[in-house]
């Protein structure tokens, strides 16, 4: 299986998007080859940013949508046909600026969809403005005197929003990212993966992250304790944990809303003649 398309990838050399793109491609190709998922059932949804063109580079169903609105689209797709596997890509602007409320609501709904955050802490496509995840004091084109805002911690936010799978990876460690994406794919419910990535042109954090990240699974960290996960999510400084912070299995939004209804295959239209009788 090869999911490559004939499109020329147009990211800066060394862009963190390559790591995410390649890691997911390997994971999906393997899953299709091993017949764990059907190729035609995967649907990729992306928002707006340099990363947004990612849907052009996979030979998979896709919907390249507008800024910030990826989560409701994912839920709509899953509801319409639960056989589909919707995987969303969002940037830090999509997820926490323009589309903040959708990101929180999809998590607390536990919609059975995946969301991958390309977190580079800068608006690259518009050539270098700060984002909701940029550190305080960050000097960007729109904050020449330093970012006056406190950054959002995506992992903490998703935990308190009751996401049932919360993980963090680093685009510079593709093998580890593959492991996380594979676990994400297996999760039934809303899965959120933050990927720390450099923007080589406007915010090159490659060295910064490389020196600081460590893997949760290489420590005695146990997945499943919410309070522990919350505490762990706050660790940010000399050491930055990556790996799976939290996982739990709960009924999904689609389970609760559909209650056995099949919207895609059941095309029967009820007889209105009987229904309107009630209005007489």
């Amino acid at each position: 299986m090869n999911l490559t398309t004939d499109r020329k990838i147009q990211w800066c050399p060394g862009c963190g998007n390559f790591g995410i793109y390649n890691a997911l491609k390997t994971v999906l190709e393997k899953a299709i080859d091993e017949k764990r998922v059907k190729q035609e059932n995967i649907v990729l949804v992306s928002g707006i940013g340099c990363y947004g063109y990612i849907t052009n580079y996979y030979h998979l169903n896709s919907f390249h949508t507008i800024h910030g609105r990826v989560p409701p689209l994912l839920t709509g797709i899953k509801l319409a046909n639960p056989e589909l596997i919707p995987i969303g890509f969002v940037g830090d602007g999509d997820a926490f600026a323009e589309g903040m409320s959708h990101t929180i609501h999809i998590a607390r709904r536990n919609s059975n969809a995946k969301l991958i955050l390309h977190n580079n802490g800068v608006y690259g496509l518009t050539t270098g403005q700060f984002t909701p995840t940029s550190p305080k004091g960050f000097k960007s084109k729109s904050t020449p005197f330093g970012n006056p805002e406190n950054p959002i911690n995506p992992v903490t936010l998703m935990l308190v929003s009751q996401a049932t799978f919360v993980a963090r990876g680093f685009s510079g460690d593709i093998k580890h990212l593959q492991y996380i994406f594979d676990e994400m794919l297996k999760h039934r419910g809303f899965a959120f993966v933050e990927v720390l990535q450099p923007c080589v042109t406007f915010n090159n954090t490659y060295q910064f992250y490389k020196e600081r990240v460590y893997k949760l699974e290489e420590t005695d960290y146990k997945i499943g304790d919410f309070n522990l996960a919350l505490q762990k999510s706050l660790e940010w400084g000399e050491k930055i944990p990556i790996g799976i912070f939290y996982r739990s299995e709960l009924p999904t939004y689609e389970d609760l809303v559909l209650r056995g209804l099949d919207l895609f295959y059941d095309r029967s239209v009820p007889d209105l003649k009987d229904i309107v009788k009630e209005f007489i």
Partner: peptide, 13 residues
């Protein structure tokens, strides 16, 4: 906004 984007997702699917 969420309502119409969800509906567009369902229509696409």
């Amino acid at each position: 906004i969420a309502a119409i984007n969800l509906a567009i997702g369902s229509a696409y699917a």
